[in-house]
């Protein structure tokens, strides 16, 4: 089992190592000048150095706060609206058309309006992240909640659970696999969108650090935020994965 796991880990690392090798190759064989495309060793060295500085830590903190706040709002809204729509045909009738209209809309297009309304601080970015992460969570919650096995609900009702509590005692836990799948997609979207928003207009955050470095041709500093956000994404995804396998320990598919 552990042998199999380590073999899989090795297989997973291989393409990442290949990309880094390719990157190194591009610089070493002179396809790209080192000033514009710094070698990976140089970038990782700079990353470690930056991680120790207070200013860079603050950039990370700003990005993480926006990411978590936006994602948390999306989870709360997405799960509650999704469950409510699955539970009540009336709510479903209200929610369905507006979701159909808003879901395919590129939420980044709202960003200029959000900036004008909410300013350059956290508010505009948090709202954008929440708006973008909301729909995958909402849709998968709705799907999960509306496909709960009827006989689970009947079993609970026969055991004396009132109709009003069925939602919390049966529907929500039974829909948990779908909800967490939606959350996983929502989290990846959150990472992308928070970075994007900071790149477009911001006074701090990792995206802002990248744009600032790019505008002053500091190639090394440009790559550091990029690597940082992918590492953050990796860590957050692993944490969510651990939460998922804990919450779904009884489910066959987990």
């Amino acid at each position: 089992m552990s042998r199999l796991l380590s073999a899989n880990v090795l297989l997973g690392i291989a393409p990442i190592a290949l990309i880094i090798a390719l990157w190194q190759g591009l610089v070493s064989f002179g396809f790209a000048p080192a000033v514009l495309l710094p070698p990976p060793g140089f970038v990782f060295g700079r990353l470690l150095q930056q991680l120790a500085t207070w200013t860079f830590q603050q950039e990370i903190a700003a990005t993480l706060i926006r990411l978590f706040a936006g994602f948390a709002i999306a989870v709360v809204l997405g799960v509650s609206i999704g469950i409510a729509a699955a539970a009540s045909p009336a709510i479903n009738a209200v929610v369905r058309p507006i979701v159909r209209v808003l879901a395919p809309l590129p939420k980044v297009a709202l960003y200029p309006a959000l900036l004008l309304l909410l300013g350059f601080g956290h508010g505009s970015k948090v709202t954008l992240v929440a708006a973008d992460a909301l729909f995958p969570i909402l849709l998968s919650t709705y799907y999960g909640a509306s496909t709960v096995e009827q006989k689970l609900i009947w079993s609970a009702m026969a055991a004396g659970t009132p109709r009003t509590q069925i939602l919390f005692r049966v529907v929500l836990p039974a829909a948990m696999p779908s909800i967490l799948t939606g959350c996983r997609i929502g989290l990846v979207i959150s990472c992308i969108v928070v970075f994007l928003a900071e790149m477009i207009t911001s006074t701090d955050g990792l995206g802002h650090a990248l744009v600032t470095a790019a505008r002053t041709f500091q190639a090394v500093d440009m790559f550091v935020p990029l690597i940082t956000i992918s590492l953050l994404g990796l860590i957050l995804n692993a944490l969510l994965g651990a939460l998922r396998s804990y919450l779904l320990r009884g489910f066959p598919e987990a």
Binding site: E149, S155, A174
Partner: peptide, 10 residues
């Protein structure tokens, strides 16, 4: 029930 309908999270 034939399908058991046990709560998988319990």
């Amino acid at each position: 029930f034939q399908e058991f309908a046990l709560f998988p999270w319990k």
